[in-house]
Design a protein around this nucleic acid. Sequence first.
DNA 1: GCAGCGAAAATATCT
DNA 2: TTTTCGCTGC
Length: 674
Amino acid sequence: MKKFILKKEEPKIRPEDYSIPYSELLNNEQLKAVFFDKGAALVIAGAGTGKTRTLIYRVARLVESGVDPSEILLLTFTRRAATEMLNRASSVLDDRCQKVKGGTFHFYCSHILHRFADKIGFPDNFTIIDTSDSLEVIQFVRTSLNLHKKNKRFPNKSTLLNMISTSVNKHLDLRVVVMEEYPQFYEQIENIEEVAKGYAEYKEKNFVMDFDDLLIKTKQLLEQHNDIRIKVATSHKFVMVDEYQDTNQLQADLTRLFSSVHNNIMAVGDDAQSIYSFRGADHQNIMAFPGLFEQTYIIKLEENYRSTPQVLVAANNLLKQASFKFDKELFSSKEEGELPALVQAPSEHDQSRFITQVLLQLREQNIELNETAVLFRNGRDSYDLEVELNRKNIPFVKYGGQKFTEAAHIKDVLAHVRVLVNPMDTIAWNRVLMLIDGIGPKTAQDLFEWIRLAKNPYDLGMADVVSKSYIKQMTSLSILLQSLKKNDLSVSEIIDELVGYYRVFCEKRYDDYPKRLKDLEAFVNISTGFSSLSKMLEELALDPIAATAVETEEKEKEEAPLILSTIHSSKGLEWKHVFIIQCLDGIIPSAYSVDDPEQLDEELRLLYVATTRAKDMLYYTYPMLAQSVYGDYFTNPSRFLKQLDENTAEKWQLEEERVESIGGSATNENLLNS
DNA sequence: GCAGCGAAAATATCT
DNA sequence: TTTTCGCTGC
């Protein structure tokens, strides 16, 4: 046999041939990452070291060197992050960067699964259920197995879902999870396994998937069908994974599968910022990356460009308190700034007053509101502040906490959409049917048994189970669904019709219905942005709209809003001024973490993440007295702050302004810097 | 089998 | 404060 050697035809591009002057814009280590070409690389990037910038320029550089953008896969932690990065890449290069495939693991997996749905025994109109849907199913299984009636205490639905999800995400047997994390329930392990089985069966039968299924089924699909794996992985010439410290075992497996043809993979992250262990992430995972990919090239970004030295001293100080030591010390050549403030307020409300007043002062110095963020541990930690901001007419957006699409009335309308897209979705049918007077769980179930077998599942009038009082309401539902199915309406027209139908139920069920009806109107508007019902469901499930974002969209955008965010949602972002509120022992660290050194460390990393968001000025604030939801009081400042000395942070004392003359504005307070 | 009431219990972070 | 469970009357 004769051999013919095919020569490699690599486009040879020298740095000087690029249109972007990379070497002027990036430091040496960043350049190494941007010009890294073939094989596996791990970029360990401390907070503020230009990690995002590096990724953006790497995308631009690959595209510029002739790589087809659709052959680049950029996996990020939120869809917001992906969109922003591609926008920025487009603005440094050109619109080709928009064609880069990007998004979260969940989003990308959902795409693959829709494409190959038949291979895993699902129709391509399967729907994605969110956590509250999952809980409903678990509850249903739990009651139908009659487990709640036994005299022994059986875990409630959210505990059960936690157990199941942990076992999936950490790749552990359910028995191991229960033994290690819920030993008090181990004696009921058989019943727990029964629930897990029932839950899985229910999802299969209804053609729905939960968040975990998206990952696990994609993994199975790629492992069991080599042809598909090759097809998919061939289209990924370059794979990049951002925030790798927050990926779990399952996502590491997917990363390997996705890059298994070209083996060009770059993971980027910072082990000191790992804050998602509740989703199965392990901060040591990122260090295991070189073991997963041969000859991993390691690049370390260490110079911080974001924060003042003062902020970094505080950050370094926090990290030193960890029981797991990180080999990390951030440094910066930015000019000196002010010491972080440690602000004790008499009450939570005074804390809010303090923040709003500083904000107003900053505004006078022409610092725009959106250059400032208020960060907190739990969604509810900002309630008091939100009231105060509204009172002072300061616009804000909140990230984290309750989502727009999680509100009951929105879920009700969406349930109708789900029924239209996937008539096998029992959870949605339940929601739809139980709105009707006289239909409870039993009738809804009977009806669903009929729907499952019906020729036309929407022609409910044909169901022989129907009787007496509710027949009228059922008929109007039936007519509505059939007409929506038949007529060729746009997404927003359909939503408009559904909202019209739902209005009466909303008014009957909720005292605050005027507000909810407004939400629904806003929802009709939002729906104009979607091309199809199924696309809308997918997008909303994987990327729910932040609750208050909707409200501000309605108001005219006179002023860029202040950012309120949970610390978890603040990952990767930065602001000139950052307030971290409710820095109380019991909140951060959470009262439920203090007994476990691992969890306590994670709470510390959480405060570290929050701290390193600040560019110029940082405030740690806490009230002297704070009431928790049911009765107990937190009065101690966070233990993590106690170790900041006077060279690291400055104590501020709040004093009420004294008004001597009567008739002056008696409510103005003055804030004194001690 | 449904709806409504009162007593009792209750972790949060996100896709 | 909000959710959940069990009981009662229809």
